[in-house]
Amino acid sequence: MSAVVIALRALPFLIFRGGQQKLPPLLDYLGKVLTAAAIAMLCVYSLASLCDFSNPNYARLLYALPATAVTVLLQLTVRNPMVSICGGTACYMLLLHFMGTILP
């Protein structure tokens, strides 16, 4: 995994070693668009993986959605990743802890 990440970072330096300075526009385009798409994909995926694929537990989804909303709101207003992540996670953990007795 580390090898792949390092290789990815080094890739442009290895490819464009010669005098060629212009980068292919398509690579540029993909680099711009794919990041957002990949992150959005990971959001949905990790949201789904919270409620265990093999044995779906939809109550967890019920807790995760408000917590996600809190995270988004915090990030939109406070603009501090630390605050948003801690706030959202605390919200989810509290919901899981206190509501867990009602909806397992």
Binding site: A64, T71, S84, I85
Partner: peptide, 8 residues
């Protein structure tokens, strides 16, 4: 999930 949401 929160990290990914923040980045997004």
């Amino acid at each position: 999930l929160a990290l990914f949401v923040v980045i997004l």
